[in-house]
Design a protein around this nucleic acid. Structure first.
Lengths: 261, 261
DNA sequence: CAACGCTTTTATCATATAAATAAGCCGGCA
DNA sequence: TGCCGGCTTATTTATATGATAAAAGCGTTG
């Protein structure tokens, strides 16, 4: 009847986001649960967000803990609070979408092709830039990491490694090799999003060797120090992913209009 | 002797970041002060981060409040904590650089041309993408906002408006017109960074009319729906800013080598 | 209609107990 | 002697509880 987490929630698979550092922590569990509840809109309707005492009763936790959890969500832009006025869910455009936790909650629990499209649009801008930078200033160690990821992708095409994680490893390695802290920040975001992007748009019935070669060409350009080529190739690669998702989005939005027009 | 904020700090100019919503709030003030102290490295040396009781004594606040502040900073990736082990400052690469507060603390209190360079590198990737998107799907209202910003810039070139805020308004308007939530998230970041970028690299001794025209051409391309041109023009514009800052960075890093090579 | 007081809710404080864990202690064994 | 295993202790965060202060909407009243 009420699917939100009672105090006994011991959901045991916490290897994700930055909060995951601590394992089983009451505050942490409440932040997770509240975060998901908020992004899925459970508190957007009438009634809004409960008052502290109600929340505490609901989770069977003390008000102190609840307040700490609420403060963390406030820091991520999801909540706001004022005396007498209570606590409320901030409008979506104030949510800190670039916070790994927030993005993960959204993708995991409120997946939408629209959101994924927008994210890939951003990747389309960011990753070519990172690849170009990497081509210029990657250290030998960073280059080695990129090469290693490519090797893994090739191995995956022979069913000797995992295609998903090796693909992610490649993109992450390029971001790290950019030497730019902001690109590196996007690492975790892109890691999260890729995990969904690839699985949803799938076409992962057997890794297409062509795709692996596309990746390898980017790697080669970076190794050769050819920034322009690296950027351009990366752009093409991601544009393909974007086309795929946008196709799916259009099909979902107007499935009957496809044939009628 | 001790320049950190005692309890009586009533610094009254809080019109910035997302935390600023509330005005004078003890928890908020402590978060600000601690955040700045952390990014400036006050707790990075030996001794590390104080234990809760010490912090509480230092700020003259209760432990509850201190814990809430620490939790907010934890949510932004600056701190970690464990029983018996105490609270510690996370390594810089785990800080949430894309959080408006964190970036602002860094730029305001630990400004470095290197950081600014990296940020502009990201803008160089992002804003052309946003401009291209805007050219495709901006609504009339969004286009009007861009035009209005250009008008303000033109007025500023005649000393009839503020050059800094009108310039910022233009870039923000483009980001908003992209219709992409992730670009819009960067709005606040770019707003913050521009405020420093422009002032530091200045060349703001009189607005150069040429620069205004460069902006106007982007605006025209967006109005005309020419995505490629809008993106390319924006790229050129930001590349110029990047060159400027990188020039300053090189001059600072090796001022004596400039002439010797 | 303005000022006052009432009420609700968060903000802040104070104190106590639980849980985690690093570090020391101690005894035994090779 | 020297090292190692487990036990004890001490420190620090995690959690709980109850009380007071301050903000802010709302109605009442002069």
């Amino acid at each position: 009847m009420d699917d939100s987490a009672p105090s006994g929630s011991k959901s045991g698979h916490r290897k994700d986001g930055q909060l995951a550092a601590w394992g089983s922590n009451l505050t942490y569990n409440i932040v997770q649960d509240l975060g998901i509840a908020i992004v899925t809109g459970r508190y957007s309707g009438p009634g809004g967000f409960p008052v502290e005492s109600e929340l505490a009763k609901h989770y069977g936790a003390s008000r102190s803990i609840l307040r700490e959890a609420v403060k963390m969500l406030t820091a991520k832009g999801l909540l706001g609070a004022r005396p007498r006025q209570g606590t409320w869910v901030e409008p979506e455009d104030r949510w800190n979408l670039l916070d790994p936790d927030v993005l993960r909650w959204l993708l995991e629990r409120k997946f939408s092709l629209r959101l994924l499209t927008e994210f890939i649009e951003m990747r389309l801008a960011v990753e070519p830039g990172a690849a170009a930078l990497a081509a210029r200033i990657a250290t030998p160690a960073q280059k080695a990491k990129i090469v290693h990821a490519i090797d893994r992708m090739i191995a995956a095409s022979r069913n000797e490694d995992d295609p998903l994680t090796s693909d992610i490893a490649f993109h992450v390695a390029v971001l790290e090799a950019s030497g730019n802290r902001f690109y590196m920040q996007l690492r975790e975001l892109i890691e999260t999003a890729l995990r969904f992007s690839i699985r949803r748009t799938n076409d992962y019935k057997g890794v297409r060797l062509a795709s692996v070669m596309d990746h390898k060409r980017i790697c080669d350009a970076i190794l050769a120090g050819d920034a322009d080529a690296a950027g351009a190739l990366m752009r093409v690669l991601i544009q393909e992913a974007l086309d795929l998702v946008q196709g799916a989005e259009r099909a979902t939005l107007a499935p009957e209009q496809v044939s009628s027009t």
